[in-house]
Nucleic acid binder design. Structure first.
Length: 409
RNA sequence: GUGGGUGUAGCUCAGUCGGUUAGAGCAUCAGGUUGUGGUUCUGAGGGUCGUGGGUUCGAUUCCCAUCACCCACCCCA
């Protein structure tokens, strides 16, 4: 038997209902916030991700589905959504056009990781990117939008907030931190030794207790923000307070993608295992110029759909549409004709095998139909159809030619 | 990539200290006399015991490999 590739799942009917419910909910909210849909290719030039996400990141360093195509192009399946949207933004010269551009997207992302709960090799994200707005109000808007979406889906969360600084304060801080780590000498663990070079801030949330003791007095970026970053961060906190959005400052919160600066946030859930991040985002003011565009301020976020699906509280399903069945082989033809009429406005599912009334009622119940419509010997003789409302538990026999007017009601 | 666990019917799981026809619940289908569901009763169908090797007279049970899933690390959505 041929199986799907490791970490790549099919999304079957019942599960897809959740998926679709999520998408409509999230898209509706994004549109209300003034965002427009954008679709970008799944396959992009590898260089795009190397320059945006960053070669030092795990995502680019070891998780990309990268290959050379038949035209000798170095390509890869997108591991995240932002890079492609920024590429499109620059390619279509929207940076030069100026103004504000707000997009939302959704689709599969690919990362060659070891699968576990909430971590797949092909997974789906819903994301939003905003270009051209400098103000922290836009950062707050992002967070409010995620909060809105999660609320609409009945999902509880914790919001972690941090500021990563900008080119004025970040590099200086980074240097200071690396200096501090070096002062610890050989006492730090192997992981930290590696992090020191790749992503020094990660050192601060090392799980190793010995390391933690060493880092108690490590400099924190939050205390070394420049004036602009500090006041933006303060404003952001104020806005969130005003909107009753609870948050916790996590000075160790680092986004794993190199392009972030200033605001960084992560929504986490305690109910889905160790892969607890359900949404993450932040500001990335430098990315557009990294990708050869005109410097443009930008913020965005992405939600992990599969992780969310575990948490979504679905609205109660209501019975809808018709189930049609025949009790006599002769009745199959009129049943099919009825179904065709019903389907002009409503759902109609036909059972082709003639069966007992009991079997049909069971069938109607199973597919959660509102009405069970059956034609048997009696109805056939009188050119009528028997219809039972499975909710009201009422039944009636109506002439076939009245069926359409009944449906119009 | 590292460490640990699991893999028996569609689903959830028993079981076999290696020995003939592998079990349960749920689900499915059919019946409980004449055309009524989401609750019951009876019965039926359905498994090469993840896959491939090895040990053995004999393996679903033991060993090895492999694949998939789960957990932790790592990382992130």
């Amino acid at each position: 038997m041929i199986q799907s590739l490791r970490g790549m799942n099919d999304i079957l009917s019942e599960e897809y209902e959740r998926f679709e419910y999520f998408l409509t909910t999230a898209s509706t909210i994004a549109k209300r916030y003034g965002f427009h849909y954008i679709e970008t290719p799944l396959l992009e030039e590898t260089a795009l991700f190397k320059r945006s996400v960053g070669e030092s990141s795990d995502i680019v360093g070891k998780e990309m589905y990268q290959f050379i195509d038949k035209g000798e192009n170095d390509v890869c399946l997108r591991p995240e959504g932002t890079a492609g949207v920024v590429r499109a933004f620059v390619q279509h010269k929207l940076d030069k056009k100026g103004g504000i551009h707000r997009f939302y997207y959704n689709g599969p992302m690919f990362r060659y990781e070891r699968p576990q709960k909430g971590r797949l090799r092909e997974f789906h994200q819903f994301g939003v990117e905003s270009f051209g707005v400098d103000s922290v109000y836009e950062d707050a808007l992002m967070i409010m939008m995620v909060a809105d979406i999660l609320k609409a889906l009945g999902i509880g969360y914790r919001l972690k907030l941090n500021s990563l600084g900008d080119q004025n304060c970040m590099p200086a801080y980074r240097e200071q931190l690396v200096g501090f780590i070096e002062s610890c000498g050989d006492a730090i663990c192997g992981d930290c030794e590696r992090r020191k070079l790749t992503n020094p801030i990660r050192v601060l949330d090392c799980k190793n207790e010995a390391c933690q003791i060493l880092y108690i007095n490590a400099p924190k970026l939050i205390h070394h923000l420049c004036e602009g970053c500090q006041s933006d961060f303060d404003t952001l906190k104020t806005i969130l307070d005003q909107h009753d959005i609870a948050y916790e400052i996590d000075t160790n919160l680092v986004r794993g993608l190199d392009y972030y600066s200033k605001t960084a946030f992560e929504f986490v859930s305690d109910n889905i295992g160790s892969q607890s991040a359900i949404a993450g985002g932040g500001r990335y003011d430098r990315l557009i110029e990294f990708l050869d565009g005109k410097p443009t301020p930008a913020v965005g976020f992405a939600l992990g759909i599969e992780r969310l699906m575990e948490l979504i509280v679905m609205p109660e399903t209501v019975r809808e549409g018709y189930y049609l069945g025949a009790m006599d082989a002769q009745a199959v033809t009129p049943i099919l004709l009825c179904a065709e009429k019903i389907r002009r406005t409503q759902k109609a599912v036909v059972e082709y095998e003639p069966r007992s009334l009991k079997a049909h009622l069971k069938g109607a119940d199973r597919i959660n139909a509102r009405y069970c419509a059956v034609i048997g010997e009696n109805e056939l003789a009188q050119n009528t159809i028997w219809i039972k409302d499975l909710v009201e538990k009422t039944e009636s026999v109506i002439p076939m030619n009245e069926l359409l007017s009944l449906l119009a009601l």
